[in-house]
Each structure stands twice: as C-alpha cells, then as structure tokens.
Amino acid sequence: MREDKKTPSVRKLRVRKSHIKTRLVLFLLLTAALMLTVIFAQQICPYDPNAQDTSISLQPPSLEHLAGTDRFGRDMFSRILVGLQTSVLSTLCLVVIITVAGTAAGILCGYYGGILDSVVMRISDVCLAFPGLVFALAIASLLGGGLHNAVFALAVISWPKYARIARSQTLSVKNTDYISAARLAGGNSIQIIIRHVLPNSIGPILVTSMLDIGTMLMELAGLSFLGLGAQPPTAELGNMMSGGRSMLQTYPWVIIGPGIAIFAAVVIFNLLGDTFRDYLDPRNSRRN
C-alpha cells in the first residue's frame, strides 16, 4: 500500500483547481444552453404544443414528429420543450425557496441551540409528520389551484429536510477548534456563520437540493391531481409522465420522451452543482 501515500502536492492541487475551472465553465455552458431552451421554448418548438389533431394520435416517433404524438395528436417534441419550461422554472423556484429557508433555519438552530432550536425543530417535526396530501388539499381548497400554490404547498412541507441537514452539519462544526478560535478572535456570530459554518456545511445541502430537482418535479406533478399544479392544456413533464402511465407497454414514447427530458435537466443541474461545490470548497482554494 506504499503507493497510496500520494500526498497531493501543491502543483497537483493547482492542476486540480484548473480542472475544476474547466469543468465549471463546461457545465455552466450546458446549463446556459438548457436555460436558453427553457426560456425560448415557445419560439423553438416546431408545432403549437396545444394544437390537437386526433387523426394523428399516438403516432410513434418519426422525422415529422421527433418524439411522436400523444393521444390528442399533439406533437410530443413541442410539448416536451414547453413542458421543460413549466417544470424547470417552477421546480427551480421551489428548490431555491426550500434550500434557502431550510438552511437558514437549520444553521441558526444548530448554532444558537436553546429555545430557538427546540421551537423550530418541533415545528419541523410537525411539518415532516403532517401528511403532505392533507395540507395540499387544504391549500387547493383555500387558495384555489395553480402552479404557484402548488409550489407554496410543497415549500411548506419540504423545508424541514434542509433544516435538519444544516443543523446536523452546524452541530458537527460548531465545536471545532477553528470556530472556537474565530470566536476567541472576537468575530461576531454572523461573521462566523457566514465565513466558517456555512462554507463547511454547504456541501451536503447543495447536493441534496440539486438532487431534489428531479424529486420535486415529480411531486409537483402529483399535486395536479388535487387541482394544484398545472391545469390542462399546459404541458408539464411530470404530468406527462404520470398521465401516460398505463401506456408504458403500448405507447412507450408518450412516457419515455418526457422522462429523458427530466433526466437531462437533472443531470445538468447536478453536474453543475457538484462542480460548483468543488469550486467553493474552502480547502481547494485555501491551498491555491
């Protein structure tokens, strides 16, 4: 096992750092491409995504209809593009809200402890334990349907996860020597949190939020059943997948097309997230 002692030399770290930069640029470009597609979906889609033509319903992919047609005879490719827009924008919005809110709550709880910690954590117990479906039903009936209400409903029930992770991370760095040192050096709490606690806890949080993009996308679709979420004819990826569920054996393109789009979005955001995390990692830059 002698060869395992490859202590990273300064030179190697520099190389790694420049690799990170290259990758970051690459993934940023990919993300930009995705976002451009999302923003200009209406302009680039070859057909009107809502135009029905029942004479060509459920056609397999062809040159004319790259991803086939759905049972209303609508062009799947156009619907996937537009669906990507609906899904990505609302999901990003949701994930940003819960990540920021949850992380803030978790770090404060972990750092200060005491009553604040107990109260916030009990609230989070209630949110976690409370069946999301009950809450969503109440929202649907109180505020009415619509995507923004669905985002709101999901945000309320999803933030505690981030609070939990952030709290546990904070707890594990709180008593480390460098925090104590920073405190002794007279740094105020906010500075310590921002300079030391946050950078040391962000890794797992960022990974969780990137991964949640895929999950939240499907959860948003699940709510449309309650009248929350996108209403027809709005195309939405999760909805398209669950709507095509029983066609898996007979007309698979109806469900696989949107699935690939979700996969692509998830991959791009996650790779970006990972690289961004590597880039932010204080230990990578400290030695630079």
């Binding site: 690799h19 991964l211 999760g238 669950s242 569920r245 469900i255 699935g259 998830v266 991959v267 990972d274």
Partner: peptide, 27 residues
C-alpha cells in the same frame, strides 16, 4: 473522484433520481 467510475456511478444515480417510482415499479 472525477474519474470514469465516478461519472458512471453518478450518472446511474441521476437516472435513479429522475425516474418516478411508478415508472421503476412498472419496469
């Protein structure tokens, strides 16, 4: 990290992550 194995494993995880569970179940 950032080698072929890593990318393979991560891609598999993205795939697992972007499939709704009814889809996995039916497959």
């Amino acid at each position: 990290q950032n080698r072929f194995t890593d990318y393979m494993i991560r891609t598999a995880s993205f795939l697992g992550n972007s499939m709704p569970n009814f889809f996995v179940a039916l497959l």
